[in-house]
Design a protein around this nucleic acid. Structure first.
Lengths: 121, 121
DNA sequence: TCGAATAGGGAAAAATTTATCCGTATTGTT
DNA sequence: AACAATACGGATAAATTTTTCCCTATTCGA
């Protein structure tokens, strides 16, 4: 596992949120777990753009940060389910607010984002 | 400037938000501009943990994404001021929600974040 | 004249994140 | 017997982000 070399910034709320939510797929993972997609394989199917590896890594970080709990069922083939902690659930309205803003302004957002990729329409 | 090599994900609102807000200091920059810290040197003093260089880069990206406007005053020494666009202003309540969550749970957050840095208390 | 403040870019290194590829293990199905 | 599904980790490469260092330019004040 990668060892961080620098100390995190903890000066304000935004810093703190960044430390637990800064990861390309973390909000999506929390969102889908909240929607009932609990197993790693389900989450991987819901987020096909993410590699299996990074999903595992980010789930582990979410667990370390106590936003989700990992439950292992001792069956074969192995079965694992994630669920939100009480703490993790408090984040759902925040993620909803972010996602709703993105949905509401999706046309503007797509336009300004694609400006940076001139080779495409 | 760095040329992106992969295409962005634009599948849902969270993807879109990520494309414009995924940058360590971007939310902070928008927040402080909204609070009236408009000049680059002011913003640098407000965010001493960020290097001057990355503040410039992220301000330029925010401008490209039409969240802020850059105004150059033709005076010496040079004077530049940023301001939020109407579009950028719509993001302020979202950033407030994120920051408020971080403030509200700051004790829990600090605890779980510091778990990852065992060499420190 | 020297230094500070202003704004900002280039190059390169460092840090971090993400992707790719390969390997482990078990059970059930074809 | 081979193969798919399940879950997960190591090693390495690639992509991306952020830092560090150095440079330009102008004006004001000591």
């Amino acid at each position: 596992m990668y060892e961080k070399k620098t100390f995190p910034n903890l000066n304000c709320g935004l810093d703190l949120v960044g430390e637990v939510l800064y990861g390309k797929w973390k909000m999506r993972l929390l969102w889908f777990i909240n929607e009932g997609y609990l197993r790693p394989s389900e989450l991987q199917r819901k987020i096909p753009d993410a590699s299996r590896r990074v999903i595992n890594i980010q789930l582990k970080e979410l667990e370390e940060h106590e936003l989700v709990i990992r439950t292992i069922y001792p069956v074969m083939p192995p079965k694992v389910e994630y669920s939100l902690t009480a703490f993790g659930k408090t984040l759902i309205p925040v993620i909803a607010a972010i996602g709703n803003w993105g949905d509401e302004y999706q046309d503007s957002l797509k336009r300004v984002i694609l400006k940076g990729y001139p080779q495409l329409s």
